[in-house]
């Protein structure tokens, strides 16, 4: 299969591989996909006190398109607020990497991974708020 230069670059030089402390309060973790389907993505975001995503890391089991899609989104989310990051669409990822039609699901998975990481972060945040409210009362 012929892939775009951008895709191959992300596959060969993936950005932001690694893991953040999933137990940390300011880290949101998304784990999506399934081994049986041939792709699993773990995407993590670290949100600073100013509400901006200051770091993002990923690990992906999957084809070259899946690796490239997740590498790309870690670049895109950095410096964004979580509300902004949430607006990233799979179609933007697919377009940027020129994914062939049979690989569109990789970009869908990358979008799901961001959403899952944000949801995890928000859940932690609301627990924290509840706790601080209780403490105030």
């Amino acid at each position: 299969m012929a892939y775009s230069e951008k895709l191959i670059d992300h596959y060969e030089n993936p950005r932001n591989i690694g893991s953040l402390d999933k137990n940390s309060e300011d880290v949101g973790t998304g784990l999506v996909g399934a081994p049986a389907c041939g792709d699993v993505m773990k995407l993590q975001i670290k949100v600073g006190p100013d509400g901006l995503i200051e770091d993002a890391k990923f690990k992906t089991f999957g084809c070259g398109s899946a690796i490239a899609s997740s590498s790309l989104v870690t670049e895109w989310v950095k410096g964004k607020t979580i509300d902004e990051a949430e607006t990233i669409k799979n179609t933007d990822i697919a377009k940027h990497l020129a994914l062939p039609p049979v690989k569109i699901h990789c970009s869908v998975l990358a979008e799901d991974a961001i959403k899952a990481a944000i949801a995890d972060y928000r859940a932690k945040l609301s627990v924290k708020k509840d706790e601080s409210k209780e403490a105030a009362e």
């Binding site: 591989i17 996909g33 081994p35 690990k59 089991f61």
Partner: peptide, 24 residues
């Protein structure tokens, strides 16, 4: 493998089959 979340889990001793994966 260094960039595989499954490899990471397997190194941490997590049984991949014990996780409820969402089929897609």
């Amino acid at each position: 493998r260094e960039m595989s979340p499954l490899w990471e889990m397997s190194q941490e001793g997590i049984d991949i089959k014990s996780i409820e994966w969402a089929a897609h």
